[in-house]
Design a protein around this nucleic acid. Structure first.
Lengths: 259, 259
DNA sequence: TGCTCGGTGGTACTGAGTACCATAATGACG
DNA sequence: CGTCATTATGGTACTCAGTACCACCGAGCA
């Protein structure tokens, strides 16, 4: 692992940049806890006070522009039309991913630290939770007022964040060279799981009509051949639906194997 | 809201109990940051040293037995047969929920604090993440070695945690009187989304066979009537499947509305 | 009485973070 | 060029969490 100052896209005053470089160098050399703010400031050639003015705390040196990214995410979500919520969320998550990718080695250095120091890990998790809440709130506005919409929005938001993290972590560990491509695939998987339909959102419609949505897994197979399974599935779905209406809980989805 | 010492199931020495009660009282009265460890110890009639011996830190007073619960969860998961992973995870999550419910007002007092103090919130989120990792690792052992299994395990684990939190939060806010019932419903929804089939796990089988799984939403409807939609769905699913094999990513699920 | 031992209190220290003040660098304006 | 206001900076002193260490007290025991 390289000990030199990480490359990337530095965003800040020269003083901040020197402090950040000094901090990461010392953290890598002596560990996080063994490094005092005073020593960081000294190495950067500034006073201790200046450090705390530049970054609010010792932890903040590690997460320089989280606030910025969060604001951009919020902005991206707010700017989206209500219709294409999945796209908006995907692109907002991509924004976060790209920010990490742009950081390059800096992101990897941070990852090395967050993996080992519990306090930093907590901090990072808390940040992710903030993204998740933005997603959740945005999705929540989209899902309408059916019973279970709150939970469904939370599930979808967390899935998006998990998918993002999954790909990001693979990249941080050097397990992939094309994270954006994996991101697309992962997000597609998530949206496929949570979005109700390819043709559009039938979430907002609720369940008032007698229509049916058919989901098919693992084709190819002759359509006629699955008719018996379909018949059984319909019967079971009907039962499940009745059972759930009492609980005020989401749509019925009962998978059944064909004979 | 009651200011008195919270009820529940106190677990600890009398000294620890007095410290915890004093801490919560002061936190509620003056806020978390304005309360010093010294004042807590003083109110409890012990020395500051004793406080730090009983609880490792000021934050730890709020989360007394998280380590215990985590150990129990781990134990519960380890004790389960590999076959019924969904059940094991559900019951492990229920273990956590029950622990909160048993605490009663204490849990609600903690919730009040964690909602307002960022440091405590981070701490709690970090705890949840630990549960999530236990779930993920357990699920991961179950899902086998198909491509995308890692991500799928993470998604399922996070969904379980999110569902648990959702119900727990509703209870903490006093929005429900029967959290266990809602927990069952939420977990059913999660497992329905992530488990591949009601009849058993066809995850382990991979996608080698040409079989199809049919999922039907929002019945009742005449089986024959959805045949055209089914035909279209199969065609689309086939395309999606081919598109994904290049990415080495999960199963294809393409919902389509019937005409 | 003298002994150990677990629990306790006190004291002193490090280091993060805050508040406040003094001062140097900058830049606008006369 | 001088003056004033602004801004960034350094320094000092303080609070408080957390750690290390030592002294002590009381219970049991020989």
């Amino acid at each position: 692992m390289p000990t030199g100052s990480p490359t990337g896209s530095p965003t800040g005053s020269p003083t901040e940049e020197r402090l950040r470089a000094a901090a990461f160098e010392l953290f890598e050399q002596q560990g996080y806890d063994a490094t005092t703010v005073e020593s960081i400031a000294e190495r950067a050639g500034v006073g201790r006070t200046t450090f705390f003015r530049a970054f609010g705390s010792k932890e903040d040196v590690i997460f320089p522009d989280h606030t910025d990214v969060l604001a951009r995410v919020r902005q991206r979500l707010a700017a989206s039309a209500a219709a294409d919520t999945p796209t908006a969320v995907t692109e907002a998550a991509r924004l976060v991913l790209r920010r990490y990718l742009d950081e390059g080695d800096l992101a990897r250095a941070r990852y090395r630290l967050t993996r080992t120091i519990p306090a930093l890990r907590s901090r990072e998790i808390a940040h992710l939770q903030q993204y998740q809440q933005e997603f959740r709130d945005h999705i929540r506005r989209w899902t309408g007022e059916q019973p279970g919409a709150d939970l469904r929005a939370e599930l979808m938001a967390s899935s998006v964040v998990v998918a993002h993290n999954h790909v990001l972590r693979r990249w941080l560990r050097g397990l992939t060279d094309d994270p954006e491509r994996e991101f697309d695939a992962a997000m597609a998987q998530v949206l496929r799981t949570h979005a109700p339909s390819v043709t559009g959102d039938d979430w907002a419609d609720g369940r008032a009509d007698g229509g049916a949505t058919v989901v098919v897994l693992r084709s190819p197979v002759d359509p006629e051949a699955v008719l018996p399974a379909l018949r059984r599935a319909l019967a079971q779905a009907e039962q499940a639906e009745q059972a759930e209406q009492a609980e005020g809980n989401g749509r019925a989805t009962d998978p059944v194997e064909p004979s």
